[in-house]
Amino acid sequence: MIRHYLTAINAENIKEWKIEMSYLPDFIRSFIEPIVYVLPFVLYGIALVGGRNSPNLARLVGSGDIITYVVLGYIVMGFLNTACWGMGWSLRKEQWYGTIETIFAAPVPRWVYIAGMATHSTLHQGGMIGIQVIVIHLLFRIFFHTSGILPSLLLIGLMLIALYGMGMMVAALALIFKEGWIVSEILHSIISVVTPIAYPLSVLPVFLREIAKFMPTTYGVLGIRHFLMGERVFFTIPEAVFKLLLFGFVWVGFGITIFLLIDRKVRRDGTLGHY
């Protein structure tokens, strides 16, 4: 049974690669876009402080290197795209292609389809981030502790579990709202504001700071910057690991539940294929 599911997951992954490569300019663009996306944040920072070192940031977090600080934040947040766009957008795309009914009629549980999308999105996003890091490093030179890479990867892995749960929920919501991009965009925008991507938690208003403590991305971004550039954080590493495990458990459970409920509803109402 597991082998059967794994085959289906891989088939979904391969199918997505094939579709993406059919639109080659778009495929190439996906690797350039993250670099172009992060540059305005870096250049804005340089314009604000007149160089790459901010004494105020150094006072707040222990390091004043704004370029490394911003780039590391946005690299980690790239994985949010996996949840919000890669997975969240998946069912809507099938609706467009006119294949959603066929996929839903396949003899595998729904989560297998979502797992296939998650596998593909993670691989694609991983490649994009890899290229982003290399290019930004060549352009600006980012400085980080190499000893922090392994623990950072562990935190990214844990953060991804929670984000997958979120992605399942978004994918399902697209079946109700139809214009699924809006759900992805809203969630992405809210999390991007609340997560301390290019600023420490201390500059947020108190209520946003409290909300941020419930975001897996907060522990992901801060934890990784802690390992790679020594940012001072408000939690211990075991606490961060525990919180990320907890968020993963809660979000995956919540995501699957929402997905199954919505799946049943749209099939009962007969609105699965509606636009």
């Binding site: 804005y44 604000l48 940031l57 290019a198 600023y199």
Partner: peptide
């Protein structure tokens, strides 16, 4: 985010 970034970098 640009506003918070400004606050963090400039103070």
């Amino acid at each position: 985010p640009f506003i918070f970034q400004g606050k963090a970098f400039v103070g």
